[in-house]
């Protein structure tokens, strides 16, 4: 197995001393180059976990290590944030500059990248997310999906090893969601960037390597998406929605139609129906 880039070891966290735990005894290993998803309803602690990994919060108990650096020790903070970048939910509230190019430069300026090196890195990052033609536009005139891709470019320019996406598609329309997700998948596939994808949309997690379901601050299920989502009963208690084809196959099985377990996509369902009905 590849070395874990992100490692959470029995992590607990509460926002105030002695207050309720937002994250409880969570252990997690995200291997280099993998695409993992964390699912959960609002208030399940998934966003808190994201911020613990990036060093925005420090665990009350346990340890988070990113690329071997403990988030507890302050001298690691900036290096951790550079290596494990983060893209947030609201596309409007994470862009700083009035021009796309300068927004991408923001992170580079912060970590002291020499001026001569900047334009090249900015252009590469923008090209990688398909936003280079918009380099000189004002962010507020872009669509939600485009703004999120600019935010990704801003992180990408810092040459991170992992990117944490904290519900980065929650406020987008279907088209924006597709744009962002396909850009992220490409980065993962082609550049080997480790992705931790936090969401409450089941469909988005369907193609990840490994998924974790959080509920009331704990990780309650872990496994391949197929192991988790194809069983409607297993995820129901956590108020998550199974993919439509998993629901349909479950309903058909109850009616006696022998659809195999683990059907998730339209293609798989069509094949099953073809197998049974021809």
């Amino acid at each position: 197995m590849a070395e874990p880039i992100i490692l959470a070891d029995h992590v607990s966290f509460s926002y105030e001393e002695g207050g309720p735990l937002a994250v409880q005894d969570v252990s997690l290993a995200v291997e280099k180059g993998s695409f993992q998803a964390i699912l959960g309803q609002n208030g399940s602690g998934k966003s808190t976990l994201a911020k613990l990994i990036n060093g925005l919060y420090v665990p009350t108990e346990g340890h988070v290590t990113v690329c071997g650096m403990d988030t507890q020790s302050e001298e690691n903070t900036w290096e951790i944030r550079r290596r494990a970048g983060m893209v947030f939910q609201n596309p409007d509230n994470q862009l700083v500059a009035t021009v796309v190019r300068e927004d991408v430069a923001f992170g580079l300026e912060n970590i002291g990248v020499p001026t001569e090196e900047m334009p090249g890195r900015i252009e590469k990052a923008l090209r990688d997310v398909g936003m280079l033609p918009f380099a000189d536009r004002a962010p507020h005139l872009l669509s939600g999906g485009q703004k999120q891709r600019v935010a990704i470019a801003g992180v990408l320019a810092m040459q991170p090893e992992a990117i944490i996406f904290d519900e980065s598609t929650a406020m987008l329309d279907p088209q924006g969601r597709r744009e962002v997700l396909s850009a992220v998948k490409r980065l993962n596939r082609e550049q080997g960037i480790t992705v931790l994808w936090i969401t409450h949309f089941m469909e988005e997690a369907a193609e990840c390597d490994r998924a974790h379901v959080m509920h009331q601050g704990r990780i309650v299920l872990s496994g391949t998406p197929r192991e988790i989502f194809s069983d409607v009963k297993k995820i129901k208690p956590y108020h998550l929605d199974a993919p439509p084809m998993a629901r349909l196959s479950q309903a058909l099985r109850q009616q006696g139609m022998p659809i195999r377990q683990g059907v998730m996509t339209v293609e798989e369902m069509a094949e099953e129906v073809a197998r049974l009905c021809r």
């Binding site: 911020k51 925005l56 944030r81 970048g85 947030f88 994470q94 992170g107 912060n110």
Partner: peptide, 12 residues
């Protein structure tokens, strides 16, 4: 939100 995003992008 912005303060958090700026911090995450190493602004100090």
């Amino acid at each position: 939100d912005l303060a958090m995003a700026m911090e995450a992008r190493c602004y100090h």
